[in-house]
């Protein structure tokens, strides 16, 4: 069959969602941010909630996420996105509100805002992109940087004795009664991408229930910060990041998946 006969509108099975703007993404080649952005916008498109969705983009690589997502958005100071989301959601409980935060933002400078928004059970979605590094400022150590992992501020590898060990804030907040759904996903392969999208959908759907925070962590690559090619970074991520940050549901419908 001639290719021209295949490439017809009626045969189209996948296209970039129109909720992504025409702007070229500012992310490095192969960076998971672009995929996660697109999945969120696909869910907003499929649920038909563009006119009721408000996003918050704080400091980090995704600081100008509002250039790429065709929805109303607010930029936030470093770490403060859950506070902004709280302010918006409390005054507009019928809207869908989400934050899009990196690991430095959510797990270091914004720890207090994260934990207290989770503890109050704000009815919001938190999308947490963990690539174990400060990408935007040039690859410094993050709270999630693995033991022994090199960064520009741990050039000889992270030494837990002097720098503290990496920690799993996602598992931490899952312990709080205010979180309703907590899961960890990745977007480096088609299967994980499809699962990640389901989790994003769940996080949005949960906002209709008014039962608390839905937090989805995405373990992602930072090939520039890790100084690898995109595909090498995805392999390294599977072999190293996934061991410490395992994939899957952590809390579903307010109940921890493993344990009590």
């Amino acid at each position: 069959m001639d290719i021209k006969q295949i490439i017809k509108e009626e045969n189209q099975v996948y296209r970039r969602t129109p909720l992504m703007t025409e702007a070229t993404l500012s992310y490095c080649p192969g960076c998971g941010h672009g995929t996660i952005h697109r999945l969120i916008m696909e869910v907003v498109e499929e649920m038909g909630i563009q006119s009721d969705t408000i996003g918050i983009a704080p400091v980090g690589c995704a600081v100008i996420a509002y250039d790429f997502m065709d929805i109303d958005m607010s930029q936030a100071a470093h770490g403060r996105a859950p506070a902004l989301a709280t302010g918006i959601k409390r005054l507009w409980p019928e809207k869908y509100v989400f934050t899009y935060q990196g690991d430095g933002d959510l797990a270091a400078i914004g720890t207090a805002e994260t934990i207290h928004a989770c503890n109050r059970g704000e009815n919001i979605a938190i999308f947490f992109v963990n690539n174990g590094i400060y990408g935007m400022t040039g690859g410094q150590m993050a709270p999630t940087t693995l033991e022994g992992m090199k960064s520009s501020t741990s050039p000889y590898g992270r030494n837990s004795e002097t720098m503290g060990p990496p920690y799993k804030i996602t598992e931490m907040v899952a312990q709080l009664p205010g979180t309703y759904y907590v899961a960890r996903h990745a977007v480096h392969k088609p299967g994980p991408v499809r699962k990640a999208k389901k989790a994003i959908r769940q996080a949005f759907e949960n906002q209709k229930l008014n039962k608390g925070v839905s937090l989805v962590e995405f373990v992602s690559n930072c090939n520039s910060g890790w100084k690898m090619t995109p595909n090498d970074s995805n392999i390294w991520m599977e072999e190293n990041m996934f061991k410490f940050y395992p994939m899957g549901d952590i809390k579903v419908e307010g109940k921890l998946v493993n344990g009590d």
């Binding site: 069959m1 290719i3 006969q5 295949i6 490439i7 017809k8 045969n11 189209q12 099975v13 996948y14 296209r15 970039r16 969602t17 992504m20 070229t24 993404l25 992310y27 080649p29 192969g30 960076c31 998971g32 941010h33 672009g34 995929t35 697109r38 977007v187 480096h188 392969k189 088609p190 991408v193 499809r194």
Partner: peptide, 27 residues
């Protein structure tokens, strides 16, 4: 290798920049 393509969409869903549009017909 265009003759190999099955239109499975895997490439498009993992593309970070969303640059791939996929078409498929059944024969």
């Amino acid at each position: 290798n265009p003759e190999n393509c099955t239109g499975c969409t895997n490439c498009a869903v993992v593309c970070p920049d969303g640059v791939i549009t996929v078409y498929r017909v059944k024969q």
